[in-house]
Computed example of a mutant assay.
Amino acid sequence: MFQIPSSLVKYYNPILISTTTGNQQTKPSIETNLATAGLNATSAISALSHHLAGVVAGRAPVAGDSESPCDNIELLNSLLPPREWKKDGEMWVQKVCSVPATTTDVANLEEELDVRLRELHARETGLCLIRRELYSQCFDELIRQVTISCAERGMLLGKIREELQTTITGYQEVYESNMAFGARKALLAKQRIENFEKTVQKLEEQKQEIRQKIKELKTDSETTGKLQKRRQMSEESKRAEEIERLKKQVQYQRNELSAILASSKKQ
């Protein structure tokens, strides 16, 4: 999921757990932890004072008051586990804040959410990982605020968060499956287009070859026609000459025959 630099969920100051120097791992002293987590102690005292003030004032019990503050804190840590990270050989841990929220805190949360949405240029509509992460953090902060005052409501909100996450994960899997299916379809379509293009190119080459053959056949036909015509004209000329020769020969023989007949009559 998209990671936002800072969270909308309220946490205590980070506490140094251990320091690694070479191959040795050392733990910080109690004084160092107390100095680092000064605000944590102050916040815890403020929360305890708030609880005691309610008891002294005779505040009517509400749902979740049967739970001790320690039980609520344990539930809070289970719903919103502490953040741990390692930097420069030092192991740090940061627990979620257990100070009860006020109406001002809720208003500030809404204002900070709007500011973050604008600063990170989150989309107002459609799918947006930034908007989803910010609203998820805002929901976690609401779970923190509700769990401190009422453990049962916090547990119910935690179940709702898990169900929403499961639903979103299911939709994401369906989306990724559809994307993969679409990619396969697009790849098959691309392969078919390539095959069609190859077939078209092959048919174009065959068409060019056929056209070339037709052109050659036309040339051969024209050449053969001209030769045939010349041969026919030559034969006709020879026949005409032969006929003319035979006509002259017949005429000559007729003349000779006439002369012979004429001389026979005189005798």
Rank of each mutant, 00 (worst) to 15 (best):
Q212G: 14
L203D: 06
Y171D: 14
A47E: 09
H50R: 02
T199K: 13
V96D: 01
T20H: 02
I17T: 01
D220C: 10
E67P: 00
Q145P: 00
Y252H: 08
L127R: 11
N13Q: 13
Y135G: 00
E241D: 11
I193F: 12
T199M: 12
I15W: 01
K207G: 14
T36I: 06
S68I: 05
T26C: 05
Q191A: 09
N13F: 00
L157V: 06
Q249M: 05
N255R: 08
N40Q: 09
R118N: 07
E74C: 04
W92K: 01
L157W: 14
Y11A: 03
N23H: 02
A37G: 07
F181Q: 05
E205D: 15
Q212I: 14
L257T: 04
L142D: 05
S78E: 15
R131Q: 03
L227D: 15
E84M: 09
Q267M: 12
A189P: 10
Y175R: 09
S234M: 15
G182T: 02
A47G: 04
A60F: 00
T19R: 12
V99N: 01
A262E: 14
C97E: 10
T36G: 13
P81V: 01
R118W: 10
K190G: 13
K198Q: 13
Q206T: 08
L187F: 13
E162L: 09
K218D: 15
P82S: 07
S66P: 02
S136D: 08
L261E: 12
Q201S: 15
K10F: 13
L187S: 07
Y175M: 10
A151E: 12
N255H: 09
C70T: 13
T166S: 12
T21F: 12
I214G: 09
E197Y: 04
K202D: 09
T125G: 00
K229V: 09
E112I: 00
A57G: 03
T166M: 10
E74K: 06
L52V: 05
L261W: 04
T36C: 06
F196K: 15
L142A: 04
S66R: 07
L75G: 06
L120G: 00
A41N: 07
L39R: 05
R123G: 08
K248D: 10
T36A: 07
M155L: 13
S177P: 00
Y252K: 08
E162D: 11
E209C: 05
P28C: 02
E84T: 08
F2E: 14
N77Y: 13
R83C: 02
E209D: 14
T199S: 13
S258P: 00
T42R: 09
V62H: 09
T19G: 01
P82N: 04
C128S: 08
A122C: 03
L261D: 11
E119Y: 11
V200H: 14
T104C: 01
Y252S: 10
K213W: 15
Q228C: 14
A44C: 06
R211I: 15
L187K: 03
R118H: 10
K159L: 12
H50T: 05
E119V: 03
Q3M: 08
K265R: 12
L157D: 07
I73R: 11
A57I: 05
E112T: 04
D105L: 02
E204Y: 01
